[in-house]
Amino acid sequence: MSETLKIKDLHVSTTDGKEILRGVNLEIKQGEVHALMGPNGSGKSTLGYAIMGHPGYEVTQGSITLDGKDVLAMEPNERARAGIFLAFQRPMAIPGVKMADFLRHAATNVRRPDRKEGEELIPMREFRKELNQKMEQLRMDKEFARRYVNDGFSGGEMKRAEILQLAMLRPKFAILDETDSGLDVDAVRLASQSIADIGGKDMGILIITHHEHLLEHNRPDFTHVILGGRIVETGGPELALELHKQGYDRIRAAYPEAAAADAALKENEPAGAH
């Protein structure tokens, strides 16, 4: 049965009270591809964080449900185990922890949502085999699994590592936050194809991007434009094309209130936030 991730009238502030999302509505069904586009600082990453339950953001109004279950009541790890995945725009390094060990814990927990701490992990051999196979498909060197999580990774390597995690965790819903940025031309093509392969008909995907590459193999059923913390327009794949070609001038002109909010957000933006 196909499940739905439903976001209704979502308002999100930072913990010190700055409102970033001002009423986001979005509904993603398993098997659908949604593109989310919008200028820098419009709230795209914040939406991803809010969906995962980042402790630095507070939901002040609205709801997020997964097939009727209240996602907002869940811890981030419970959300992951419920089948939601975020590929980070800026993944974090965990020095000293090998990618393979990290992923073995992650995969075990996500596949066995009721697992208690300290209970058995996926058997090593079985896990290794699967991991090697996935890395091969993504044309990643075996050595990668022995490296420490994102520690000293190049920008592109981090993004490839996020895709590897996506492949291993096979979530119901994936939010890919600029997973294409930092990848070279070949890598981006491979990423685009891989995401399509991983997803198939079972995954609902929200692709946050400033480029068209990822959409090549993942043709969006819907394109949403976010401005000033609100989705102001939704269209089909042609909307993504239009924005790529022509930018956000038409959008700003058509939605002056959102454009003003967007400008206000950036005014008191901390220096070097991007």
Binding site: E75, N77, R81
Partner: peptide, 10 residues
């Protein structure tokens, strides 16, 4: 937070 997003408890 990153690790918790991968299903690890705090």
């Amino acid at each position: 937070f990153y690790a918790r997003c991968r299903g690890l408890t705090r």
